[in-house]
Structure formats: structure tokens, C-alpha cells
Nucleic acid binder design. Structure first.
Length: 1095
RNA sequence: GAACUCGUGGCCAAACUGGAUUAAGGUACCUGCCUGAUACGCAGGUGAUUGCAGGUUCGAGUCCUGCCGGGUUCACCA
């Protein structure tokens, strides 16, 4: 006869998972979990596209586990949850990886290698690790549709993105500007603010800083002092900026390098930093180069910044002249006196603030023309001085790997010193941004750029953000909210090759332009261009045959303007973040296809990614949705924290503390990894990933649950031939059954409430607690006897049903978190095709009995207390005792205890539980105040209450119990009622007592002869059971026992023969004189011999 | 430098809107148990002035201020 419930030899999660994966494949379970919900309300989830050009790490497992958990949970609840996968394919990381592999730099693209070949290489490279991603996705049990993913490099995707750009264009949200931006000469590209925010971008570096002396026009030796950490920008200086309300002083002194007399101007607050003291008779020879600070002679004058404004000075390094009047003092609100001199050197071409303030004051930048006649600043795009800066022509302004004796900053400083224009030159350590990929310093550099005018909808962005349910809330209001408050326009341009080209064509003078919103439109425009003779018909035909909207193809397209002028494409690509932020639209090729699908799936109900996406994907999704749909893009979002190693360090390949997700899963199983990661800490906290924790989960949770099913339920249910027939009403089951069913229903409620609030951790912990403590350690332990003794009857049947219901419900509840094990359990129980096609359990409110839960908890605590007395007194549980006494406080407790006392008695092996009630004088009682009620009532008086209550006599306490109220004399007389006080017993004089909160219990330790004999009988039973097991007898085998006469236990055998036989399934227990065979046993140091035989 | 966030026994962590006793529980550690479901198990026990210093309150792990430390994010830093 085949067994109803499969039994296993051992538990191996990794093996089990492999089998379950095969099952899912064979039965198409994922697809079914979606298709069986056809017509049900949908729950929309957006998959944040990973980039497959790197290998998946353990941190990817956590964010994907979160996504998976909620999608599965919503499926259980009856929603249809489609999950389209996606791949992020464009961007600088891909390009740099390809450059590295090919051994080329950006400058080589278009020369050594054609753009076409280069982009082909990028396309090839970007999905390099797709197989690993697919593999981890599968192995970790993440259900997402990998067969039909959206891919950002596909023409349909790009076309949708173009359409979005066009809609922004039509709303006037797309514009071209010229701004100072972070620029990486080493990478040859501007950096977005997201890129500048990569960790490790700001590094501590030591630079040469200079306080330069700008000579006030028309004076002999009066100078403005201005500090800079970038002396290489001094040739580009065209203004000095001061604070309107800052007080400045003119100080008479000597230059420390040249000993020339000088009058210098600086902020009064900064005086002490650079000058030590006033020294009226200061002589030039006293001022040495090394001395800083130096003394000064006198303060000549004190003026406000506003009075300095408009003053002119001589150009400091006159290599190139500006085309308008410059070299004036201007006012800026960003000037402080925390550093430097309170006068800011202003080079409009190399600082964002400088640029802005110069523009406001009509100060020109210093520019030269390159070979093509385009205006450029004094430093070229590779970070070198242009030829016009004769002394330093061709030299790199920062460390870009060149070898040189001294840096440009140092050489400029030396030159200033010699020219009597350097007030102070020092080394200065500060944090400076570095390119996140090349690790070289960033320059602030003037670049042409296209912007998205996000500031135009700033208020709406903030308003709608407030409607999003952020987990944790602080990320939404704090990190994300603050970012929105300080929003700047989104710089969309990237001057690279592998990405979505900006679909804007302009005439040379910029007077006419067009933004293309679809391939069809492009095709129409191309036809016009052919007609105008600007393009070959063949080219157009070839292009449209196999549309590829990447460079270089699109750059060869020349369109014609309304006035017949040729228009060329703006050369930039767009920020890759725009790609991924477009996915709600572009994944469906909206609006060209799937209009209904898009509408049904926008906005998303739920997304989840790491906190690092706050300014990335979370922002771009939000920004695009708000600008174009005036809607949020997602309603609920979980931003998970970082994964660190077990010591709290960041994981990095260099340190070698990275956890390989494949190994982790192979060793412990994905279920254990998922359970650990989400059960240990709320996902938005940083998780210190400790492999020992995964193993603990594996053996404690999964081990216990496996054992409850396999070692217990399946074993006995198969013996008894149990199948789940007609449900026996819970009210007709044992109290213990009613209890666990009640607790189970409470569990369902807890899980549902937590999950509805996107809190997975409390749900996991609740399930864990239920399985370990309540089901396994209490229910199953106390139910052992009913399962292995006696014939099948209604009571036993009910117990089986109870255990079965618990296991089946647990399987469903845990299935979002541990999709493999739960499915196996569910199917082993014969509960259905797959747990993932099941429905979330109903809560049967009428099966919840809180009073029952409460008394069972009391039983558990009292049991534990009595056991602790036994332990202390060194009395084995196997030794029966006559009685335990429990202090009973009040009628409720009396009634509750009545119903569980049998359970306690059996658990602690006593014959009788007696109650010590309130009027029993042996009980020493105490009164404790209920602070929650009395705090507000008594206020400060409450401090007197403690001592007053301690002084109460036992008689007074009995009076309180009898009358329900009590007079207490504090500073004023107070009447306290019994609900404001709690009476607690603490001690029973003369007994072995344990006390815990409101429970007090005493144990009668006296051993009668009968009890001793029964104890011996129990020992015998135990030895026999052990032998049965050793001999490999089946649990149901009947035996015969021969026991050699021994005065140590003959009496016990005689008195308890019946009991011993019953317990050991013995049909016969014979006491014999001596046998030549048998096994040695020992009870309390007495040796004996016994023989067992199967009947 | 600024903002946000966290800081509870060796380690991981709970404690609802400030409230009741000894600040849960797990792990590790110590002790005792192979008790017929589990030794990857069971039972019992040791271990914390809740980072430090103040404050508000009848009452603070929880609220406020300052400091120290971790993390994240931001910054035009001249």
C-alpha cells in the first residue's frame, strides 16, 4: 500500500528546491498563478531593470526577494499580478567596460574603431551576464517574466522614450542651456548629479591653495586678498565677489615672500587667521616666508562689502582679455567668512556660482576660440591649458596621470610669489569630487546641455510624493522629500555613444528645431529631406528597412526645416536614468501599442529597490509620471537598506568579504536565505549578512517544520490511514485543538495585517514563533500520546485534522517567503496542485478564543515555573510528585486554571494541582499600583504611594480584596479601587516556591514510597523504550519482556506491571531468575538485565 | 561641512501612541537530559546602570538638547 503522506529520510533544502523547480517548469506553475487570476483585480508591479553587464550579488537577492514576496502575497489574495522583467542596457558603465576590454579610450571612438562597431560591441557586452541573472532569478525563486522582458536598447523601447521626450518638448519642458557642470576630462564626459553622488566620489586630496593679491586699480600697493584651492583657474579670473553685509578691513603689512610693503583687504572675521598681532614698528626683515601668521602694522580702514562693490582691480594673470569690461568687485550671497578671506575669486568658466553671479553682474568669462572657431575656456576638454596661456600651454590642470615635477597649481603659485602677488601659499586638504569610474578629479566646466525643466513642476512633485506610501516613511519625507525641495533642472545630455539619442534636429543657427516623437514621423521628415535633396533615397530606404535608432545611423539623417534649411541632430545622448524612468510607458511600447494594457497598469501599486535608487529610479519614475500624467508612478515603495558583511563593513571585492549568492543558495537553499534576510531585520535597516544566521534559520525553522510534518504527522497519519474527510467542528475537538486553531487564526490575522502594510518582517517572525513555540513545542508535544496510543476515534481524528489544518495553513502563509519548501509541504499534504495557486486563508473569527489563548499561556508559564523548581531541587521530571500548589488570585484565574490544570499536572508529572486562594493565610501578598491609571490621577503624590503600599498589612490587603477599595494616607487621604491596584502573591513560607509576575507556585517535594516506586517504574519504561528504539523495533511492534529479578525494582514491577506493559506495548512482562542473554540496564546506579523480543 | 538615520547583554534583536514586575526572544556560553517527533533536539541557568551627559515628566529604551560613534545621502565649497 502506498503511503498517503510521503515520508523522507532527511531534509536538504537545496535538493528539495531543485525538485520543486522542476515541478514548476513541468506544470508551468508561475504562468498558472497569473492565468488563474484572469479577470480578477490586478496588482501592478514594476520591475526595476538591472544591468546585466555585472554579476548579481547577494544584495540583489534581498531586493528581489522583497519584490517577489509581495507579488506572491497579492496573488494569494486573489489579485492578478503580472510581472514583466526588464534589462537596463545603456550607459557609461557599459561603455567603460567595453573601452577597457578593447584597450581604447573615448578619443579612439570614431577613429580607431567606428562608432558602429563600438556600439555593436556595447550591445554585445551589455547582456554578457544575462545567463547568470536568469540563473539566480530562477534559483532564488523570484517569479518574474523572463521570456518577454523589456530591453532598453530595442527600437520599440527607444521609440516610446522619444515619444515621451516629444511630449515634454510640446509642454516646453525641454530646453537647451549652457551651464557649468561637473565634467570628467578623463572620461571625456559631463557627469550628472546622480553620478556625482556615487559613493567614493568625494575624496580627501591635498591641493596647493593660494591667497592671491589682486591689485586695486590706481593704487601703489593696495590689494584684495582672495583664496583659491584651484590656482589653475586664476588666469580665468574676471571678478571678485564679496558679501554685502560682511565687514572688511584694510591692513598695512609686508608681503612675506618679497618683504614689499602692502595694504591688503580682507574680511575682519578672518584677520586673526592670517595675522598674529599688531606691531607698529614692523620691519620688512621681520617678515619671513615661513612665518604664518604674520604681524601687521595697523588697520587702515574698515568698510562694508557693499562699499567695496564696483571697485576695479588689475587683471592678475593677463594671458587673455575678456571681450567686455571686467575685473570688478561684485556682490554674491554665497560668500561666507568661514574659510578664505571673505573675498571670492570668481572665474565664470569654472564654477557654477561664479557663472551665475558673473552673469547677473554682466561680467564676461574669458574665452578663446578653438580650431573650428568655437568659443572654449582656457582649459580644453581633456583638461589642458590652451596655447594662449603661454607659460603653461598644454599642461594638465589636475592629476590625470601625467608625470611632472610640479603641478600646474604649484608653478602658478611660484610665479605669483615672484611677482609679489602671493599673500600665502599653503597645502590644503579638502574633499574634492572625482569621477566615479575613472577615479580622476572632476572639473567644473562650461558645457552645452539639454535640460528637463523639472523645476517647473516642483510643487506638484512634492504634493504627489506626499501621497506615496514609503517604506520606511522617513526615506520619502526625508531623503526624497528634501531632494525635491532643493530640486534643480534635470540635465539630460550625455556626450557619449551607447545610449538613446536625443531626437532633436536643429538648423545650424539654432533658429529652427524639431523634436521627433515616432519612427513614422521621422520617416515622413526624411521623405521631405529627400525631396529637398538633402538625403539619398537609398539611405532612407535602408534605414527604414531595419530601424536602429542608435548612433551613428541617426546622425547621418539630415532633415529639412520649414525654411528649407538643413537640420542636424543634436549630438547628445540622453541620461540613461531617463531610459529606466520611462519603463511604465516604454515597456509596453506605449502609445504605439498596448494602450489598454498601459492604462490598466499605471501607476504601479508597488515597487521596491535599494535606497541608492532614491535619487535614481525612484526619482526619474516620479518626475516623468508627474510631468506627463500628473500622477504618481507608484503608490507603495520599499527602499531597502544595504547589505554589509557580518562585521558591519561594506562588501567589496577588494576586501574579499563578498557573499556569493550562488554559493549561499547552493549551500543553504534560497528559502533559508530569504527567510533569514527578511526575518532578521526590517529590510530598510542595513543588514549585516551573517552566514551563521542562515544556518540557524535552516535548522531551527525549517528543521522543526520538517520534523513536525515528517517525523510526526506523516508517520502517524500513515499508520492510522488518516485522510482529511468531513471537517469536525472545532467546538467538538479537544481543548488543546481548539487552542492551536485559535492561535492559528490569530496568526493568519497578524500575517495579513503586516503584509497589507508592506511589513514582511513581523509576518515572518509571527510564523516562526507559531511553528517553533506553539505548534511544535507545545501542541505536538502535548498531543504525542493521542497520536500514538489507541485506535482511531473521533477525538484522534479531530487531532489529525487540527494538525493538518495547521500545517496546510502554515504552508500557505509562508509561501511568499519560502516558496519552495511551502510548495512541497502543501503538495505532500495533498492540499492541491501548488501552494502558489492557493488562496490566502480565511480568518475564522469565531474560532479565535482569546480567553483560551490566555489560559494556555498561563499553563505554559506555570509549567515552566514548576520545572524550574524541579531543576533547582534536582528532581527529575520522571519522578512523580504528589502535588503542586498555585496561588490563585481572583475568580477569573480560578476558572481559567480549572480548565488547564490537567495539562499542567501531566507536563510536570504531579498527581494533583491544588489552589491557594485569597483567604488562605499561607499566602504572602503584595499590592502593586497600576501606573497608567494612577499616574494621571495622583500626579506627584504617586511617589509616596510605593512606600505606603509596602507598609500595608496582610489584613488590609484582604480587606481590599473583599471590599474592592482601600483608603491610603498619603499627604492627603486617597481612596484607591481594586482596578487601580493589583494584588500579587510573592511567597509561600516553608515551601519550594517560584514566583513570576502574578504567578506563584509551590511544589510538594515529599516522596512517599508509592511515588518512589512509580518513579522507578517510569525509569523502567524509559529504559525499555530506549531498547526498543536501539533494536530498531517499529513503533507499532508488540513485544515480550523478560526482566531479571532485582530487589531494586521488583516491587515497582509488581505494582506497576500493567502500566509498564501498556506504555511499552508489551504483551507480557515476566520476572525471571536469570537469563544468559539480554541487555544490561542501569537505574540509579543499580545494574540489571532485561530481554526484549518482538512478538 | 550639512541633512537624514541608527547606537539595547559577546553577537542578532523585541518593547504598540512615554506607563506597571527582574528591559522580551534567539544565538553564543554554563548545567542537566538521547524523556518513542526531532541531540541540527529538550529543559534549566549566567549575562544589560538601553553610547555618554544633561533636561522635560508622577513616570523615559521611547520625547528634547549637547556630545561621541556607525551608516546613508547631500554640497559650488572659493
Amino acid at each position: 500500500m502506498s503511503k498517503q503522506y510521503p515520508e523522507y529520510k532527511h531534509l536538504s533544502l537545496p535538493e528539495l528546491e531543485k525538485e520543486v523547480l522542476k515541478f514548476w517548469d513541468a506544470h508551468d506553475t508561475f504562468a498558472k498563478s497569473v492565468s488563474t487570476r484572469e479577470g480578477k483585480p490586478s496588482f501592478t508591479f514594476y520591475e526595476g531593470p538591472p544591468s546585466a553587464n555585472g554579476k548579481p550579488g547577494i544584495h540583489h537577492v534581498i531586493s528581489r526577494a522583497i519584490k517577489d514576496i509581495f507579488c506572491r502575497y497579492k496573488t494569494l489574495q486573489g489579485f492578478q499580478v503580472k510581472r514583466k522583467g526588464g534589462w537596463d542596457t545603456h550607459g557609461l558603465p557599459v561603455e567603460l567596460q567595453v573601452e577597457k576590454a578593447m584597450g581604447i579610450t573615448k578619443a579612439d571612438i570614431g577613429t580607431k574603431i567606428s562608432i558602429k562597431d563600438y556600439n555593436a560591441a556595447c550591445k554585445e557586452d551589455v547582456l554578457k551576464y544575462k545567463h547568470l541573472w536568469d540563473d539566480i532569478t530562477r534559483k532564488m525563486g523570484y517569479w518574474v517574466d523572463l521570456d518577454d522582458p523589456y530591453i532598453t536598447f530595442e527600437s520599440n523601447y527607444i521609440e516610446s522614450v522619444w515619444n515621451l521626450l516629444r511630449r515634454l518638448w510640446d509642454k516646453g519642458y525641454l530646453y537647451k542651456g549652457f551651464t557649468i557642470q561637473p565634467y570628467s576630462p578623463a572620461a571625456g564626459t559631463g557627469l550628472s548629479s546622480h553620478e556625482l553622488n556615487q559613493p567614493g566620489t568625494y575624496q580627501e586630496i591635498k591641493d596647493t591653495s593660494a591667497i592671491a593679491q589682486f591689485k586695486v586699480k590706481g593704487t601703489e600697493n593696495e590689494y584684495f586678498l582672495a583664496w583659491t584651492t584651484t590656482p589653475w583657474t586664476l588666469p580665468s579670473n574676471t571678478a571678485l565677489t564679496v558679501g554685502k553685509n560682511i565687514t572688511y578691513v584694510k591692513v598695512r603689512t609686508f608681503n612675506r615672500y618679497t618683504q614689499q610693503p602692502a595694504i591688503v583687504i580682507l574680511a575682519k572675521d578672518r584677520l586673526a587667521k592670517y595675522f598674529s598681532e599688531q606691531k607698529v614698528d614692523l620691519q620688512p626683515e621681520e617678515v619671513k616666508p615661513g612665518s604664518k601668521p604674520i604681524p601687521y602694522i595697523e588697520i587702515v580702514a574698515e568698510v562694508k562689502g557693499s562699499e567695496l562693490a564696483g571697485m576695479e582691480y588689475d587683471q592678475l594673470m593677463p594671458y587673455v582679455q575678456p571681450d567686455k569690461p571686467a575685473f570688478r568687485v561684485i556682490i554674491g550671497d554665497f560668500v561666507t567668512t568661514e574659510d578664505g578671506t571673505g573675498i571670492v575669486h570668481t572665474a565664470p568658466t569654472f564654477g557654477a556660482d561664479d557663472f551665475k553671479v558673473a552673469q547677473q553682474n554682466d561680467i564676461p568669462p574669458i574665452m578663446v576660440e578653438d580650431e573650428e572657431g568655437n568659443p572654449i575656456p582656457l582649459v580644453d576638454k581633456r583638461g589642458r591649458f590652451v596655447k594662449e596661456v603661454t607659460d603653461f600651454a598644454g599642461r594638465y590642470v589636475k592629476d590625470y596621470g601625467q608625470e611632472e615635477e610640479r603641478s600646474v597649481d604649484e608653478d602658478i603659485s611660484i610665479m605669483l610669489k615672484k611677482a609679489d602677488r602671493a599673500f600665502l601659499i599653503e597645502k590644503y586638504v579638502h574633499s574634492y569630487p572625482h569621477c566615479w569610474r575613472t577615479d580622476k578629479p572632476v572639473l567644473y566646466y562650461p558645457l552645452d546641455s539639454w535640460f528637463v525643466k523639472t523645476t517647473a513642476v516642483k510643487d506638484r512633485l512634492i504634493e504627489l510624493n506626499n501621497t506615496i506610501n514609503w517604506k520606511p516613511a522617513s526615506t520619502g519625507s526625508g531623503r526624497f522629500g528634501n531632494w525635491l525641495e532643493n530640486l534643480v533642472d534635470w540635465n539630460l545630455s550625455r556626450s557619449r555613444y551607447w545610449g538613446i539619442p536625443l531626437p532633436v534636429w536643429r538648423t545650424e543657427d539654432g533658429s529652427e528645431s524639431i523634436c521627433i516623437g515616432s519612427v513614422e514621423e521621422l520617416s515622413g521628415e526624411m521623405d521631405k529631406a529627400v525631396a529637398a535633396g538633402l538625403m539619398e533615397a537609398d539611405f532612407v530606404k535602408n534605414f527604414l528597412e531595419d530601424v536602429d535608432l542608435h548612433k551613428p545611423g541617426v546622425d547621418d539623417i539630415v532633415l529639412v526645416s520649414k525654411n528649407g534649411q538643413p537640420m542636424h541632430r543634436e549630438p547628445d545622448l540622453i541620461d540613461v536614468w531617463f531610459d529606466s524612468g520611462s519603463m511604465p510607458f516604454a515597456q509596453w511600447h506605449y502609445p504605439f501599442e498596448n494602450q489598454e494594457t498601459f492604462k490598466a497598469n499605471f501607476p504601479a501599486d508597488f515597487i521596491a529597490e535599494g535606497v541608492d535608487q532614491t535619487r535614481g529610479w525612484f526619482f526619474t519614475l516620479h518626475a516623468i509620471a508627474v510631468m506627463l500624467e500628473d500622477s504618481v508612478a507608484y503608490k507603495n515603495v520599499i527602499a531597502n537598506g544595504l547589505i554589509q558583511d557580518k562585521n558591519g563593513n561594506k562588501m567589496s571585492k577588494r576586501i574579499g568579504n563578498v557573499v556569493d549568492p550562488f554559493e549561499m543558495i547552493e549551500e543553504n537553499g534560497a528559502d533559508a536565505v530569504r527567510w533569514y534576510m527578511l526575518g532578521n531585520t526590517s529590510p530598510w535597516e542595513n543588514l549585516r549578512f551573517n552566514p551563521a544566521g542562515v544556518q540557524e534559520v535552516k535548522r531551527k525553522y525549517f528543521g522543526t517544520l520538517y520534523n513536525t510534518y515528517n517525523g510526526f504527522f506523516a508517520t502517524y497519519a500513515n499508520i492510522d490511514g488518516f485522510t482529511y474527510g468531513e471537517r469536525i467542528p472545532v467546538s467538538e475537538r479537544r481543548e488543546l485543538d481548539q487552542w492551536i486553531i485559535s492561535v492559528l487564526n490569530s496568526l493568519v490575522k497578524t500575517v495579513q495585517t503586516s503584509m497589507d502594510d508592506y511589513e514582511a518582517t513581523p509576518a515572518i517572525r509571527a510564523i516562526d514563533y507559531f511553528v517553533n513555540e506553539q505548534l511544535s513545542n507545545w501542541y505536538v508535544r502535548l498531543s504525542r500520546r493521542i497520536f500514538w496510543k489507541g485506535e482511531m476515534n473521533q477525538e484522534k481524528e479531530a487531532a489529525y485534522q487540527t494538525l493538518y489544518e495547521c500545517l496546510r495553513t502554515v504552508a500557505v502563509l509562508m509561501s511568499p517567503f519560502a516558496p519552495f519548501f511551502s510548495d512541497r509541504l502543501y503538495r505532500d499534504l495533498g492540499a492541491g496542485e501548488s501552494v502558489h495557486l492557493a488562496n490566502f486563508p480565511e480568518i475564522n473569527a469565531d474560532e479565535i478564543d482569546l480567553s483560551l489563548e490566555e489560559r494556555m499561556e498561563m499553563a505554559q508559564r506555570l509549567t515552566s515555573m514548576i520545572l524550574s523548581i524541579r531543576k533547582k531541587e534536582k528532581l527529575k521530571v520522571r519522578q512523580p510528585l504528589q502535588k503542586a500548589m498555585v496561588a490563585v488570585l481572583g475568580k477569573d484565574m480560578h476558572e481559567q486554571l480549572d480548565r488547564v490544570q490537567a495539562i499542567i499536572a501531566a507536563e510536570v508529572n504531579v498527581k494533583d494541582i491544588t489552589y491557594i486562594t485569597g483567604d488562605n493565610a499561607v499566602l504572602v501578598k503584595k499590592v502593586k499600583p497600576n501606573f497608567r491609571l494612577l499616574g494621571p490621577k495622583l500626579g506627584k503624590l504617586i511617589k509616596e504611594l510605593g512606600p505606603a503600599l509596602a507598609k500595608l498589612t496582610q489584613a488590609e490587603i484582604r480587606q481590599l480584596e473583599a471590599e474592592g477599595e482601600l483608603q491610603v494616607q498619603l499627604s492627603e487621604p486617597i481612596t484607591l479601587t481594586s482596578n487601580e491596584l493589583e494584588v500579587v502573591s510573592e511567597d509561600i513560607p516553608g515551601w519550594a516556591v517560584a514566583s513570576d509576575g502574578k504567578y506563584t507556585v509551590a511544589l510538594d517535594l515529599s516522596l512517599t514510597e508509592d511515588l518512589k516506586q512509580e518513579g522507578i517504574a517510569r525509569e523502567l519504561v524509559n529504559r525499555i523504550q530506549n531498547l526498543r528504539k536501539d533494536k530498531g523495533f517499529d513503533v507499532t511492534d508488540k513485544i515480550e519482556i523478560q526482566l531479571v529479578k532485582n530487589e531494586a525494582w521488583d516491587e515497582a514491577v509488581e505494582s506497576f506491571s500493567q502500566y509498564i506493559q501498556q506504555e511499552t506495548l508489551a504483551q507480557n512482562l515476566a520476572v525471571v531468575e536469570g537469563i544468559p542473554y539480554g541487555d544490561a540496564i542501569e537505574i540509579e546506579n543499580v545494574q540489571g538485565t532485561i530481554a526484549l523480543a518482538k512478538v
